[in-house]
Simulated scan of single mutants.
Amino acid sequence: MRAVVTDGTGGPEVLSVGEVEQPQAGPGEVLIEVRATAVNRADTLQRRGMYPPPKGASDVIGLECSGVVAALGPDGDGGPVTGAGGAPLAVGDEVCALLAGGGYAAYVVVPAGQVMPVPAGVDLVTAAALPEVACTVWSNLEMVAGLQQGETLLVHGGAGGIGTFAIQLAHHRGVRVVATAGSPEKLQTCRELGADVVVSYRDEDFVEVVRGLGGADVILDNMGASYLGRNVTALATEGRLVVIGMQGGAKGELDLGMLLGKRGSVSATSLRARPVEEKAAICAEVVAEVWPMVADGRIRPMVHGTMPLEEVRAAHELMEASGHTGKIVLTL
């Protein structure tokens, strides 16, 4: 089958489209004929040899997809194979899925609990931009940080895939949202999506802005080490910092005295390496709680643009140049 293959590790030039063996669905698994996949920052790290797939996962890059159910593996109990939320799956169903790997390919196998219906009103290609951001944002803001109505959320990288989704979800749940971005156009996008306050990380100090608002109850951070100290300073009393990326490095210095004084917490999470059962539980909550917000238009999937799979190098270059707003989608 057609898939993106890598010639060693390195820059986008190591990527090309070739032929690999088609996977087969085992017990409790679903084979999806992929129509589209989306590019994530983690994909670029895997390409560079810095984010290997979990044991047993496909070596093909790609953490999400949309497509059509092509085959169902046998259920361990002999009953129907059910997707996220418990709905039975059938060959021909249009679905999207959260993956541990394998999305940049014509077919992918995924545990049934990570297969989700396409939200009403969303076309099949656009649906490829939803699983990773929806599951990441929901699991971190709601399940880890316990974000509450009336609190203040600081989102770093507000114009990216995660950021645009987090702004919309928090806004429609009655949260005051502060978002950082690097250009006037991206700051305006954040405003349009529901950010109450926007901060240019090139020209302003987000710490001073957020402290002027009383501090952030929750911070969703994709930078890691370079922002660690400043994020802790920006936290409100009993604030929660959730680190989901390391664009600014992996090792930082933590002022425990300040954190203790604020009765704050720091969490670092990775969605990809979680057990299948945990990811299935997250997907089920996303279907129940988030998909209705997508279906009625409160949350809009943000797609910067689509490219054919053969242009995967250009897609990675665009991602690493931060020249996009929302998600970059590859079509098959």
Rank of each mutant, 00 (worst) to 15 (best):
S66N: 04
N140A: 09
E204S: 05
V144P: 09
R176M: 04
Q188I: 04
R211G: 09
Q148D: 13
S200E: 09
S270N: 14
L330M: 08
L330T: 08
G323E: 02
A280D: 01
K55I: 07
D221M: 09
P117V: 03
V108W: 06
L256I: 12
T189C: 09
R191A: 06
P275Q: 05
T237W: 08
V91K: 11
A100L: 06
A129K: 06
T237P: 00
L193D: 01
R272G: 01
G86N: 05
T44L: 14
M143C: 07
V115A: 08
D59G: 13
L235I: 04
L220M: 15
G212I: 12
L45S: 13
R272T: 00
A225I: 13
V178T: 04
T325S: 12
A295E: 15
A100E: 13
A97G: 04
V69L: 11
R313M: 08
L72G: 03
P27E: 15
V91S: 05
V312D: 01
A70T: 07
P74S: 09
A170Y: 03
A25D: 14
A90C: 04
R48V: 06
G79L: 02
G174Q: 05
E320A: 14
I61F: 06
A84F: 01
E204L: 08
V34H: 09
R300L: 12
E277R: 12
G146D: 14
C65I: 14
G85A: 02
L124A: 05
E253S: 07
M302L: 13
V122S: 00
A273N: 11
A25W: 14
K279L: 09
V133L: 02
T126C: 06
K55T: 12
M1A: 14
L241F: 03
M1R: 13
E33A: 14
M143T: 12
E278Y: 03
N222E: 12
M246P: 00
R35N: 12
S58Y: 13
S226W: 03
A236Y: 06
C65D: 00
A87M: 01
V115G: 03
E238G: 04
R47L: 02
E320M: 15
A57N: 08
L153R: 01
D205E: 11
T6G: 02
A84E: 04
I299Q: 03
D196C: 09
E21S: 15
T269H: 03
M50N: 11
L15G: 04
R202N: 14
G62E: 07
D59Q: 15
E94R: 14
A284G: 11
S66Y: 07
P301T: 02
P74M: 02
E21K: 15
L169F: 11
C283S: 07
K55E: 14
D75K: 09
Q149N: 13
E289F: 02
V122P: 00
T152Q: 07
G103S: 09
A3I: 01
P52F: 07
V125M: 05
A38S: 15
G257H: 08
V177P: 03
G182E: 01
T37I: 10
